[in-house]
Design a protein around this nucleic acid. Sequence first.
DNA 1: GCATGATCATGC
DNA 2: GCATGATCATGC
Length: 451
Amino acid sequence: MLSTAKIHPIMGEKYDQTDPKDILRYARGLIGKSLSEVVLSTFKVRSGKGKLGQYVEELYFGLKANNESRPDFEAAGVELKTFPVKKLVKGDYVAKERVKLGSIKYESLINEVWESSSLLKKNSLLLFLAYLFEKGVSDLDYVFILANLWEFDEADLKIIKDDWLKIQNKVKEGRAHEISEGDTLYLGAVTSAQKGTDRVSQPCSTEKAKPRALCLKQQYMNVVLGKIFKSKTADFERVVKSLREYKKGETFESLVESRFKPYFGKSLDELGENFGVNPKAKNFAATVSRRILGVKTKKIEEFEKAGITVKTIRLDKSGRPEEAMSFPYFKFKELAQESWEESTLRNQWVGRFFFVVFAKDSAGVYRLEKVKFWSMPELILDQEVKLVWESTKKAIIFGDLSQAPKSSDDAVAHIRPHGSNSKDVDELPNGKLETKRCFWLNVKFIQKIVK
DNA sequence: GCATGATCATGC
DNA sequence: GCATGATCATGC
């Protein structure tokens, strides 16, 4: 606990805790500095994660530990979110992790209504305070790089509300133990267990559930950061241009599905011709799918924010997927250093998927059969996929990729080359060069999903 | 028919 | 120039 804490002379400067703009002005006094530079204090550094946010609140803003259900700056309605970002080689800033909005209380959640929900009350106006994360730097020495007020626009709020309702609904149905972060789009229900085995009770079932917190997904934060910093990669196209496009009771997902419905049964070639897409390209079906969504070349904002991976699947005449499903290649040395919980693979596969399925008819013509939003049950992810990942990591560290999971091992996934050609290589920790590889979802597993 | 390695068009 | 999504090619 804190023994003493003194505000630095330059922070003797006052700010108006009832005025969001003045809070922002004061917050910006931190930009380019670390906490240790602006706060003179003798205090014990607390152990554990996420303490920097508390230090900032107490030492810089002079706030007391706050009641969970109200914003930090109650009179101004401003909630402070301190979070780490990383700088990519190309210069863009990305969130290091999700931004937590508050823990989920299963018992009370089921009695809340959205408009007066604790989530909305607390998080309507956010003050994003980002610091640059660097390995090995202590909490007080991180340099702050951004302070910005953030209010969700109508389009985002619509999706966040539907996310919230979806989570609430699962708890009402007594399925809190089946919640997965991939269920939802922008608002995630991330596990917050201290230990992997921690479980809490839920109101509508005797089954114990993992403790969870509501968060803004990492991908959502990446888009937000891109917009704030006006990054070149933050140029997106939205599927939903206006809220009026939503029919009554329609969610973003059902709206997307309804965009595809008029094309069900149409042949892939026919669709490609209509949209002027080169049928020879290997991403032919993927490009056609994007055109159906009404986007041409830019990234899809809603999909990007939600971390939705769009994949096309071709089924043969017997309904079997013709190929396994590839993902971006991984760097051997990076994977070797990761932990499963924070791995690139888990982060990608815990998200949502959108499958566009083309099936070969009796005449051998591919036709758009259906579309499907899907997320991997966390049980499969944290057991079966984890095993595949761990075995891959072992093989990489050992320096022999022939020991990595193969398609014939009959698991959920395997690894296989994924480069431009056999000369497209990456270095193993032992210095040996191997063709770049990626994780692939097995044909049988994909078949189960789309059935 | 299937597993595995190799490769290609696109977009940035 | 390279990552990505996806499919092609080969061999058993």
